[in-house]
Amino acid sequence: MVELKEYQRSEVPNWCSGCGNFSILAGVKKALSELNIEPHNIVLVSGVGCFAKLPYWIKAYGFVGLHGRSLPVAQGIKLANPKLTVIAFGGDGDGYGEGGNHFIHACRRNLNVCYFVHNNGVFGLTTGQYSPTSEKGRKSKSSPLGTLEKPLNPLTLAISAGATFVARAYAGDFKQLVELMTQAIQHTQQGKGFAVVDILQPCVSFGKNYEYYQKRVYYLGTEHDATNKIKALEKALESGEKLGCGVIYEEP
């Protein structure tokens, strides 16, 4: 097994104290370690946003590119060297806004790449403007009277566009987060296609706090048939008051 310390770098992350990104960073290391993937065989690709600094703080090959563009870069890497474990990271602004087109087509294309999206419903690095997943009516510096747009549903979008693995995780539950990341990486290792994990992430400075999510997050039980696309879409359409986490859809 590759020990956790092998992924260690001496720089300290500069995220806000209590940020959901810490557990996502730790979760990535834990999942990679448990799957015994050596640092030099991993490429972590990100874009721009608080989340996007993640590759700077883990010892593995990293590519910190442009806002919204982690998916095309990750797919290019995988096409050039299929032996590498390639994980792309996105944010809700970065991946669902700026990179929305790439997201749809990566789902259709189904290359063996993971996509972990740090979804906190707010632009953190630019100080709190509303994002594509902010709830309708959200007030912010850029929407003083509240937003007029409905939030984007990344789960239904990913399923309908053809992604073969779609899951929702919560950054506040480390154990389940690692489990879902592990399953996503395994899905790509087995050559089954594109694996999306939308990660609900508290933003302690501008977004929703842990308490908000604790009240709403629950885990899908064995009664949920993730191989049934219609059932998966029904689950993905659940209202914002209930946030079902786990594997929503996996193509049989």
């Binding site: 690709v45 095309p72 290019g76």
Partner: peptide, 26 residues
């Protein structure tokens, strides 16, 4: 040789950069 027609030219160049970084002549 890998040849691909991506969704737009932003994807085109970013895929090519990813491929070149990973060792392709792109």
């Amino acid at each position: 040789l890998v040849v691909i027609q991506p969704e737009d030219e932003i994807a085109v160049i970013n895929m090519a950069l990813g491929a070149s970084y990973a060792g392709a002549r792109a």
